[in-house]
Design a protein around this nucleic acid. Structure first.
Length: 472
RNA sequence: GCUCCCUUCGUCUAGCGGUUAGGACGCCGGCCUCUCACGUCGGUAACAGGGGUUCAAUUCCCCUAGGGAGCGCCA
């Protein structure tokens, strides 16, 4: 059997992490088995589907690198086919027209709830003959007894009693097909062998299997993957911040980090945490996926992201960093080689956004010293080391890390101080705060001109402080 | 309310009848060190509860509790 999976989002919002993981699982499953992966846009809800959402989903898939072999298919372009199937069902008696007014349906629901029963359609029109020219919907004639058995690849064997199911609408009064009908037709026509989807679809499965059965087709294999919960264990929602995959890019995450994080939510391979896509296509399997929902933990994602920032090709990281610097109105061309910045900062940043932030000092003078840092390091005792550094650096002809390191070391030795006593005031003077890459890297990246200017500024600051407090 | 599903450290998880219940993130501490990090070493912390089955249950069964999903002319 040739393996074919699909990812079928509805374009009513952005691609979120839950959808992305489902897509990843489907993609991996297809890749692992040398099969095909299909992208299908489920836009039968004309009211809520938008072109922006379609673009956002396509963009998200591209960013993640989940390329599809077929599609994107749009259900709105297949209405004729769905109607053909509905008519076929009508003809064979597996479906019937229903003209129950909405008010009656609402009332039915309320009454059932009041009786503490599950709200279901009562089958009122099952045996009625409804005029096709009058307003009506088409319902699927679900079997009244018996049971549907689904052998789910993650949930295991599940049995649904037909009497728990009601006659679902498969064609709306406006003539458009509904979800449960169109998925069945599409999965059938596109020869999807494995339906991998979110847990929220479990209850649809027996209905879809019944429709398939009425059509005389064998059902595909199903795998219902658990939901992803928010940091707080509650259902993931907009309240949790970045739920859209593209927001993670904006925040400076690498796609491989997000993918690696997502695949470990519900799936594992022994104690291994880091997986390349190649490894995953070898190791992943859907029946090892957990049944229980899992909570999204941003701290772990950050850890993975830093791991990938550290191990990714610096040239690529540099390119990406350029984008994030640009968001801060910084033109990387007006500074050192971006690669040098990356090499100096990649062990200090968990995201590219953070890397851009902590690298600002390289490109422009800061407005104020960090209060705590200045208080601690820009004290009168630091005046002499800084004055000496100023002179020594001014005289330095080769602005290299080696020379810079030697200079700092020499000044420290001359004054009988340890490195820290010189490097820290110098760091605060040049960076504005107490944390930065090694002092030689820091000075190298800032450049001679800005370094001298900022040391001078810092000396002025110390001078003012001495004058004001009488410290000394 | 009804139907179905789930339940190991705070979080992600390993475990598939006999383990000092393992790893990872986080957190705490040591080392490294010019700062911050990185790295490294160590520590903290879990089988939801109750019944069975068994020589033996985290592992199998049942019940309870808690959590989730579904119950649309949404997907």
């Amino acid at each position: 059997m040739t393996i074919k999976t699909r990812f079928a989002p509805s374009p009513t919002g952005y691609l979120h992490v839950g959808g992305a993981r489902t897509a990843l699982f489907s993609w991996l499953y297809a890749r692992k088995h040398g099969g095909q992966f299909v992208l299908r846009i489920e836009d039968t809800d004309l009211e809520r589907s938008t072109a922006e959402s379609v673009n956002a989903i396509l963009e998200g898939m591209t960013w993640l690198g989940l390329e599809y072999d077929e599609g994107p298919f749009y259900q709105t372009k297949r209405f004729d086919r769905y109607n053909e199937v509905i008519d076929q069902l009508l003809e064979s008696g597996h479906a019937y027209r229903c003209d129950c007014p909405r008010e009656r349906l609402d009332q039915l629901r309320e009454e059932a709830m009041a009786r503490k029963e599950k709200p279901r359609y009562d089958g009122c029109c099952r045996e009625k003959t409804v005029n096709p020219d009058e307003p009506h919907v088409v319902r699927f004639r679900n079997p009244l007894d018996g049971a549907v058995v689904m052998d789910d690849m993650v949930l295991g064997k599940m049995v649904f009693e037909n009497r728990e199911l009601d006659d679902l609408i498969i064609r709306r009064s406006d003539g458009s097909p509904t979800y449960n009908l169109s998925v069945v037709v599409d999965d059938m026509d596109m020869e999807i062998s494995h339906v991998i989807r979110g847990n929220d679809h479990v209850m649809n499965t027996p209905r879809q299997m019944n429709i398939l059965h009425a059509l005389g087709k064998a059902p595909p294999k199903y795998a219902h993957v658990p939901m992803i919960l928010g940091d707080d264990g509650a259902r993931l929602s907009k309240r949790h911040g970045a739920v859209s995959v593209m927001q993670y890019r904006e925040q400076g995450f690498l796609p491989e980090a997000l993918l690696n994080y997502l695949v470990r939510l519900g799936w594992s391979h022994g104690d291994q945490e880091i997986f390349s896509l190649d490894e995953l296509t070898q190791l992943f399997d859907i029946d090892q996926v957990n049944k229980a929902a899992s909570a999204f933990n941003t701290d772990k994602l950050l850890w993975l992201n830093q791991h990938y920032i550290k191990s990714a090709d610096p040239a690529r990281v540099a390119h990406l960093l350029g984008y994030h610097l640009g968001k801060r109105d910084i033109d990387p061309a007006n500074g050192p080689e971006l690669m040098d910045v990356v090499m100096a900062q990649r062990e200090r940043a968990q995201t590219l956004e953070e890397m851009a932030e902590i690298s600002e000092f390289i490109y422009r003078d800061f407005d104020d010293f960090d209060e705590k840092a200045a208080k601690k390091h820009l004290r009168p005792v630091a005046r002499e080391p800084l004055e000496r550094m100023l002179v020594a650096l001014e005289a330095l002809e080769e602005w290299t890390r080696e020379k810079l390191h030697a200079t700092v070391e020499q000044v420290a030795t001359e004054l009988g101080l340890n490195m820290g006593k010189v490097a820290q005031p110098l760091r605060v003077a040049v960076v504005g705060r107490a944390a930065s890459p090694g002092i030689d890297d820091t000075l190298f990246l800032v450049g001679k001109e800005a370094t001298l200017r900022r040391i001078d500024e810092a000396l002025g600051y110390i001078f003012d402080r001495e004058a004001n407090t009488g410290e000394g």
